[in-house]
Each structure stands twice: as C-alpha cells, then as structure tokens.
Design a protein around this nucleic acid. Sequence first.
DNA 1: CTGAAAGCGCTTACAG
DNA 2: CTGAAAGCGCTTACAG
Lengths: 346, 346
Amino acid sequence: MTDTARGTARRYGTRPTMKDVAARAGVGLKTVSRVVNGEPGVTPDTERRVQEAITTLGFRRNDSARILRKGRTASIGLVLEDLADPFYGPLNRAVEEVARSHGALLINGSSAEDPAREQELVLALCARRVDGLVIIPAGDDHRYLEPEIAAGIATVFVDRPAGRIDADVVLSDSFGGAREAVAHLIAHGHRRIGFIGDQPRIHTAMERLRGYRTAMAEAGLPIDASWVALGSTAPERVRAAAAAMLAGPEPVTALFSGNNRVTVTAVRILGERPRPLALVGFDDFELADLVSPAITVVAQDAARMGRTAAGLLFRRLDGIEEPPCRVEIPTRLITRGSGEIPPEDV
Amino acid sequence: MTDTARGTARRYGTRPTMKDVAARAGVGLKTVSRVVNGEPGVTPDTERRVQEAITTLGFRRNDSARILRKGRTASIGLVLEDLADPFYGPLNRAVEEVARSHGALLINGSSAEDPAREQELVLALCARRVDGLVIIPAGDDHRYLEPEIAAGIATVFVDRPAGRIDADVVLSDSFGGAREAVAHLIAHGHRRIGFIGDQPRIHTAMERLRGYRTAMAEAGLPIDASWVALGSTAPERVRAAAAAMLAGPEPVTALFSGNNRVTVTAVRILGERPRPLALVGFDDFELADLVSPAITVVAQDAARMGRTAAGLLFRRLDGIEEPPCRVEIPTRLITRGSGEIPPEDV
DNA sequence: CTGAAAGCGCTTACAG
DNA sequence: CTGAAAGCGCTTACAG
C-alpha cells in the first residue's frame, strides 16, 4: 500500500489505475497488465489476488493510455450528410456491424452538406487518430486529407467520389439506375418526362441527369430545357419545379425524381392532382407500396454500400497494397404502379 | 535536429510529433504546444517558424495523448437500439448537435435490443473514458454502471428508464399518449379495441398498455384477454396477433398499435382488408398522411428527447449536483383519418 | 513466473 | 517570452 492517497481517496472523478491495483494486490505493474489482458504466465493464486484487487477497487483499464502506447485506436470514423436521414440509417448500421466484428468503435457525425463542416469533422477524427474513415463527402476537394492518408489513416469514400485525390470509393450505379428508370417511363409511352434532382454540385445528381439524358437520347426524344430542374430538395423548390413542368400547353406526363426527399414531395404533388401523372423515384422508402398508386422506384442497397465500404476499409488496415478502387453497387428497378401509368393524351 | 531518424523518415504510418516540430523549428517542446493551442506568450517570429515546421512536417496534434494528460476526452457515447431505425435518426442527430456545440465528438452504437450487447458496448465506451453516456437501454439492470458513474462518467437514459439504479431519464409520455389514443377511438364509437405492442420487458410497451387499460376503464369498457398482444414486432407476429383479434363473432373494430414497426404492418393489414378498421399508431412516420386512409398517430418528439437528454448530460458535466431527475416529453395526437373511422356495426 | 525501467505524445507546474 | 522536467496510465523490451 504505497499509494494510499489514491488507494483510499476514491473521490468522485478519480479512478483507480493499474498502479493502484498492483499496490493493493502486492504485485508488479506488469503482472496486473498480464491479468487484465489475459496474457499467460501468471500463477492462479497471483491472478486471483489481482482479480480481487480489480473488483474491490472498481478498476477498468484506460483505453486512452493503451491506445497511446499501441498506436492503433480500434476506432473508425463515419462522416455522413445527416444522421437523421433515413437513407443513411442502414448504411450507418452496416458500417457499425463491420467495425464491431473487427473490435472497433464507430465515431460518427453529420457534415450537414457543408464542405467546411465536413473538413472540420474529418480532421477532428484524424486528431483522435481513428484508424480509418468512411466518408460520404459534402465537399469536392479532399486534398486536405493527403497528409492524413500518407500518415496511415485508411479512407474510403461512399455514395460520391472524393474530390481531387485518388481514393477508394463505393458508389451506387446512379447513371445506370436513372437510365433504366427513364427508359421504363419511355417504354410505357411517355415522351415528355421531367427530372427533378439535387444540387448540380452533388455527383450523384449529375450522374442521374446523365442517365436521364442518355435514356432520352437512346429513344430519340428531345429534351426541353424546362423539363430539367436541379437544385435544393426543399419542398417549396420541388413544388415550384414541378408546377413549371406541368404548366403550359405541353406539360410533362411523367416525373423522374432524383432522390428520396424529392420523391416524398412528388408523391404529395401527385396526391393533389386531379389527373394522373407517372412517377419513378430514385431511392426506395418504407410504405412506397402502400401509397396509392404504389410508387415505382430505383432502389439502392444502402446497407450493402456500407458493408462494402467498411469491408474495404478494414482490408486496407490489414495492409493490402492495391491501388485505389471504385466499386459500383447495382440498383434495382421496383415496379409498383406509379411508373406504369400511361400518358394522358395517348 | 536531434531526432533525425523520425524527422526525415516520413515513412507510411509514422507521424511527426511535437518533438519533431520543436527540433525542426529550433524551439522547445512547450513553445510548440503554445502555438498549437493558441496560447499567448510567443513572439510573432517564433510562431511563424513553428507554423512553418508544422506545415512542412504535416503535423497534427495527437488528441489521444492530450486526452490522457487532460482527463476529459471531449467525447460522449450514445447507445441506441438500432442505428438503422428511422425513429432514432432525429434523436441521434439532436444529440450530435448538442455534443458539437460543446466541442465533443459522438461515438455511437446499437444494442440490437440485447442487454449483453448493451453492457459490452457501454463498458467499451467507459474504457475509452467518454465524458458521458446517453443510453436507450435494452437491459433492465444497470448496476454494472455504478462504478463508472461514481468515477464521474455522466449518464442520462432516454426513452426507457434505467434498471435498478437511480439515474437521469428523459421519457415520452407513453402512458398519457396511449390513453389519449384509445380515448379517441372510444369517442368515435369503438368498444372492442385491440392493442398490439412490443415485448413486455420493454418499459414503454407496459406504459402504453397501462394507458390503453386506463382509457378503457375510464369509459367503463371491459377488455377481453384476446385483445391484447405484446411481443416481437416482427411482421409475422403482428399479423398473427391481428388475425386472432379480427376472428370470431366479436372481432375488434379498432386497433391501437404500440410503435412504428407495428404500425407499418398494421397499415399493410388494413390495406388488405375488404372492410374498414380504425387504427391509431404510436409514433409518427413519414408519409403517414399519404396512405389512404391517412394514419392517425400519437407523435413523439424524438429530436426534443435527444436534445433534452444531451443538454442534461452536459449540465451534469458542468458540475450541477442535483439529484437524478425524470423528464417527460409530451406526445401529440395527430388525427388524419384512420383513427376517426367508426365501427362497422354501429 | 515476475517486475523495474523506458517510453507512447502530449500538458502541467515551475523556473529562468 | 521560453524551455527542461515530471507525469498522465498504460505497453514494450528486457532481465531476472
């Protein structure tokens, strides 16, 4: 009992350390370390004494100190757009499960679609020395990450590619999915199809626009400039965009909505209209099959994206030395009714 | 340049430290610390030299080491049931925002409704020395947390109270909400009302059952044992429970569903039935107003619960010494149609 | 089987 | 204004 001041004064906020346990059990520090970490080479009797000291003192190893010594923190960071967005829930959970299976904890945060906040968050995670990062990027310039990556922080981008650096990325096939969706509407007789998508600086928005354009071109259909509206996904903006497309002598007869937030508003608009309007939405959502008409969607597999990204991250942490790769997860068209409504005037 | 081996060998995985920066800038360690932390007492010229060394070396302070020395980790843990559950998204985000405003990072994980996993996760977070914990408990015995709380880890429970320890808790008014929902159905003429809820070991399930029973009793209505089904929220179980209540000569004419997962399945069942059935669900969900009939719900304010819990946590961390408190967040009945359907046989 | 010494990368308390 | 020494709580490398 050398360290009585600590050993006895179990005052609020002060925790026993291995040193306290060692003193109490009458053994050396290293022996405590062996018992705590289940290393071999301790007699059953010694082990029992140490365990007893651990229990009575309420000792719990301080992983911060351990981490400092060992190098790896056994934690990874996940930066996404908004923790409250249901689209990212399954992705978040999938990343967590992979981390858990590797004994790592998950620190996560929202960029709120703000590049400065993304960078601030990412660098805070780097300062905490997370072993790796899964990033759904908000910004389009990630050169700030170069020193971190060089220093060994594994990094995988998801949903959108990294900007101005070469890094692993896991994407949905936005182009293919959008093309299939629009081709589906065309196959059902539509010739005037509107596209309401996300901000043009968002990669997936541009990819989906490219899919829309390609499908139209492949069918030999012209695109009127008023049929395409990229911008905020706020309901008012989406309503205004839809209203513009549906006005005039040659209104669109079908709508392709570029993501789940747009789709939700589009569904509301449909419900308010007296005459039918076809709709295919990018992203599936719960109860899409219960709305009337049920909503035809291009479904992304968010959980698979998260699983793939996290799996790749841990492969990198295990030391594989391949060049950065780009994985594309296929989408799936789910026909439920709204995408199969024929145009009114045919 | 004392430490040339490190200073020059910027090999993959090795990061420069303050010592390297100090050597490069030709200053002492403490001066680097001052610059890095923006402390006063450094001449502009010295500061410039240090900044230069930081930039060329790509130095970023190791917060693990800082934490070890300072005591506080500026991180909090959030343990919820399932990161993929949309109900927790807004709560998660609200906790993050409060943490962020206090300069703290958020580590989170899912208990998967498994008490053992909850404990494992919570203790891992304690070992990392998070400053505080926000817990949506899966288990009903939290005595394992006592040494941690005594050691200064602030803890706030949300959505369900802690088991066998006295701790802060933020709850929805499950009892009041359920009572209001059932009273609403009764007011619309129903006398045989079914309740399908979560596992009986979950506190909110029992509170909602209590609300159901109270409302029935207050209206002088008897409750048939077959009208109450508590258990798993898996669709098959919910379907079976509903089928049992709707069979026989005296089927229920209205359903009160105990949470959002049950409600989703109940909505599907409604859609498949030829004859109308009234429904009020506990928990609101997106598009509840677009389903036909639109779904009447008892809405909880999950974001407010998260904000309240995290706010309380940081008040505790700031040292307030009040006894543990219990905060109840009111619910709100939103009438949309499904709860106002009269019974068939009236 | 056991333990004393050194060190992980910082901050604290102190002295110039 | 500046810096050398000690220490946060562990693990590593080594010696008995």
